[in-house]
Amino acid sequence: MTTTTDVPTRALKVWQGINQALVEEMERDERVVLVGEDVGRPGGPYGVTRGLRDKFGDLRVRDTPISEQVLVGLGVGGAAVGLRPVIEIMFFDFAMIAMDQIVNQAAKFRYFSGHDLPLVIRTMAGAGGPNGAQHSQNFEAWYSAVPGLKVVMPSQAADTKGLLKSAIRDDDPVLFIETLGLYTTRHDVPQVDEYLVPIGVADIKREGSDLTVVATGRLVDRSLEAAAQLAEEGISVEVVDPRTLQPLDTEAITASIRKTGRLVVAQEATAQYSFASEICALAVEECLSELKAPPVRVASPFVNVPTPVPLAESRAPGVDDVVAAIRKAMA
């Protein structure tokens, strides 16, 4: 568990954790800048960066035109000459426009030059608002397949804050995926001066002995709820949140699978060629003899995200879907 009873905590929404991390890191290091569409004056479409421009000025908190290629280029070039930029791509879907700068440029900078590229690309993924098929997608698996990139995808406020601070201090390009559906969820955040969560370390959100659920994004809380329900029936579920997808904490994940012998992977993305598939492959390659049942994936159906919220929410896997998957794996 990340939090302990020794440290005072305060309940924060996920977006507040992001805002605090940015403020703290920008106060600590003047090389840290925040650049993106609408990040300054309006504080972003969901208010995540509110107050930063007033605090740090419009050179360090820079509103940009709608130019995603140059937006990421500002990060690549800026980092190459001494900044530690945080670039915001408003919706993950818009990262498609900047794919060349992320994949062909940022990810390969060290490979070609041998030099650091301290760049954070923040973006927002998933359904949760009436945003539709071009503003709701989960592409985390695509970027996790690129050598040279780190991919962080936290689910709770404390992890989000601590991992964003670590990402800003990291000397590699980090794609930092925030989940829209989680921005206003509240969790305890330790109130300490330097709250850092290391990149590449999974967190066991709930300990259990019968089955392991590896979950990301919105499915972490939903898996915890499913685990609580099933505990009443005497099924002991362990919930592992990898928090970082690249590099993946394979040790923690395989240790949990070996302990329980059963695996469910839960994510908001669709199943084919996904993170869930990667975890299933890991389980089969590393833990086959310990597996008591075939792994089960919980994911969105292989269709686009609809615009009306009730339809979008019907597409995303819920607590019941996780419960059903656990029952299947336990049968």
């Binding site: 800048v33 650049v35 050179l59 360090r60 820079r62 290629q69 140059v70 937006l71 990421v72 280029g73 500002l74 990060g75 690549v76 070039g77 800026g78 980092a79 190459a80 000459v81 001494g82 900044l83 930029p85 060349d100 700068q101 062909n104 440029q105």
Partner: peptide, 15 residues
């Protein structure tokens, strides 16, 4: 692809 990076270098100098 160098054009966005050059813009970033120039922004880095300015900032």
């Amino acid at each position: 692809a160098g054009l966005p990076i050059a813009t970033g270098c120039a922004y880095g100098f300015q900032a």
